[in-house]
Design a protein around this nucleic acid. Structure first.
Lengths: 161, 161
DNA sequence: ATAATTAAGTCAATATGGCTGACCTAAATA
DNA sequence: TATTTAGGTCAGCCATATTGACTTAATTAT
């Protein structure tokens, strides 16, 4: 007897089709990070520096704790990267209202680097989206959002409030 | 004078919206790799091992050269990972028709690991896609494909021929 | 007022996954 | 026969992450 479940699986839920998505995620993410990576390399920084600069630029008066909760890395990992960014004056630290905390902001230099790096990715995405209609784009956004785990959806919502 | 270009930018091409996509790509990719990573850790493997197993499983009689052209890493980087997989009998090497080349195939053990790892990602994607209609899914796939650089699109097409 | 918790920082060791450069062998091709 | 190709290996380096242990200063709870 034929496997009715299999016969009834819609085309887009076929394993073959889903594996294509797995591969596209791998290829697209790699290509997506390639541009900034090349720029960062020239100044002896890595992708981790971009992430820090990105979220510090996004969120004004971000604290270390909040940054750690976005990046989900240990403070020891963050510290190396952050110390470099502070030493080289891309990021400025100041004491928060709660004096145990620190506020992080981008310096002019930091803002310029942030712009330079993110612009590559923004342009890439904009050029892609221009080829599609609003329906396709909505599908893309909604599904991408749904690919994020519940806890991180909350984090995403929080930083985009 | 107001910047007409900015006023005319459709909502979905706004920088704010595009930055959301940047963040969703970061969060979703991280969550996407988390499941297999945990399984791999238990057997002292990493994400690189998964990639190798994935593509060896996909393409029968893959050669080292072809694998390198998919992964885009150096042969020295591949060698460490691949040697472990061969030593621990997940992958079997044999001589190709061109006797300089080697064919890579998954052993039973390798197939089982491949299944276990990819199943996590397949289920995750399937559960997500189930919530959407075909139009949304098409938008997602098409845009993801368009996010891949031209050269890698060719590679993707090649392995899905 | 004191104790407990929190935010941040630091030191040390370890793993993974990349890289470059140099060099080798064997087989296929020009 | 000479050159190119596929694959392998040694050595060293770098970036990014981890765990564990411990410190300081400030806030909060008892």
């Amino acid at each position: 007897m034929a496997d009715l479940n299999k016969l009834l699986t819609p085309l887009f839920l076929n394993e073959v089709e889903i594996r294509k998505i797995i591969e596209l995620l791998f290829f697209s993410y790699r290509d997506f990070t390639e541009g900034p990576d090349k720029v960062l390399e020239k100044i002896n920084f890595g992708r981790a520096h971009h992430r820090v600069i990105y979220f510090v630029g996004k969120q004004k008066n971000l604290t270390i704790k909040e940054l750690l909760s976005i990046l989900k890395i240990t403070k020891q990992s963050l510290s190396r990267v952050l110390n470099q960014l502070v030493n080289e004056k891309y990021i400025i630290l100041s004491v928060g209202e709660d004096k145990r905390t620190k506020k992080l902001i981008l310096s002019k230099k930091g803002q310029e680097l942030e712009r330079r790096l993110s612009e590559i990715q923004i342009k890439k995405i904009r050029n892609v989206l221009l080829k599609f209609n609003e329906m396709d784009i909505n599908g893309f956004k909604k599904i991408l959002y749904e690919m994020v785990d519940v806890k991180n959806k909350e984090k995403f919502d929080e930083i985009n409030r």
